Simulated assay, not measured.
Amino acid sequence: MKNLTIFDLDHTLLPIDSDYEWGEFLVRVGAVDEAAFRQRNDEFFAQYQAGVLDPVEYLEFALGTLASFPRERLDALRAQYMREVIEPAILPQAVKLVRDHIDAGDLVAIITATNHYITAPIARAFGVEHHIAAMPEVDAQGRLTGKLAGTPTSGAGKIHHMHAWLERMGRPFESFERSHFYSDSHNDLPLLSVVSHPIATNPSSALASHAQAQGWPTIRLFND
């Protein structure tokens, strides 16, 4: 594999934010208190859009919600969420983009700031084997504790986790002839600035302006 290709997930491959929509799904099915949960979920989402989100604070809110359910119930909710929310949002043009890189022989991964429990089945649905996301802490019995294990996979943290993953693969970043990163968000500027081929994908206005100034290519897989 000569080339490395990395995809962000939310608003890049998906026209939605899988983390935010998970919260909305829990409200809709009555699994959480609507007023209290939606207020906190909306506050965190606004902070993310403004680029001022504390990733640990948010992740421990999200992971604490996961940990509040018995595992059997949580798994059933996730399966329903995949059917009702995620599968309709997986669009052919996004699947084709991923498949084109896989078929070209690239080493392909999804790196997302959203937690691993929610995004693991989404990565599988795209046919992507390598998936890097915020890891929930589990106890000795394998139960979610509501805490974050390790460091967030957001901002510059994506660079750290990418290098750690590649080292485990025995393929350091410098060994690739070309490296691509597709993202919609200015929050991903650290990793976009490291790869040889950054691609602004369905970009936010802030990223679109930066990409234009830098001469980076811009693509739109959908209008979201």
Rank of each mutant, 00 (worst) to 15 (best):
L13T: 12
E43N: 13
H163N: 12
F44I: 10
S196F: 06
F69R: 04
V128Y: 02
I16H: 00
T151V: 12
R143M: 07
E24I: 05
I118D: 06
H160E: 14
L189I: 15
V56C: 01
A123S: 14
I122N: 01
I110C: 10
E174K: 10
S209D: 15
L26P: 06
D42I: 06
E57A: 15
Q49M: 14
S205C: 05
R71W: 08
S18F: 02
P198S: 11
T153S: 14
L59R: 00
G157D: 11
E177N: 09
I102C: 02
G157V: 09
A149N: 08
S179P: 06
P92M: 00
D54G: 11
N202K: 07
S175D: 15
D8W: 01
K158H: 05
T201L: 01
V98I: 05
Q39M: 03
Y81M: 06
L4Y: 05
L189W: 02
G215F: 09
E24L: 12
A164N: 06
A164Y: 04
L74T: 05
H180E: 07
F44N: 13
V138P: 01
S193R: 00
E34P: 00
G215C: 10
F45P: 02
W216K: 02
R28Y: 02
A156E: 13
L59V: 09
Q141N: 14
V98C: 01
R220F: 02
H131Q: 11
E60V: 09
F181M: 06
Q49K: 15
T65M: 09
A149I: 01
A164H: 11
E60M: 07
K147L: 14
R168D: 14
Q80D: 15
K147A: 15
G23R: 02
R28C: 03
M135S: 11
A120Q: 03
V98R: 00
A62V: 13
W216N: 10
R143H: 13
H197V: 06
P55M: 08
P92E: 02
Q214W: 03
I219E: 03
G64V: 09
A50P: 04
A94H: 01
A67G: 11
L26D: 06
A31C: 08
F37C: 10
T218G: 04
S205L: 15
E60H: 08
Y182A: 09
F44C: 11
L59C: 05
I219P: 02
A113P: 08
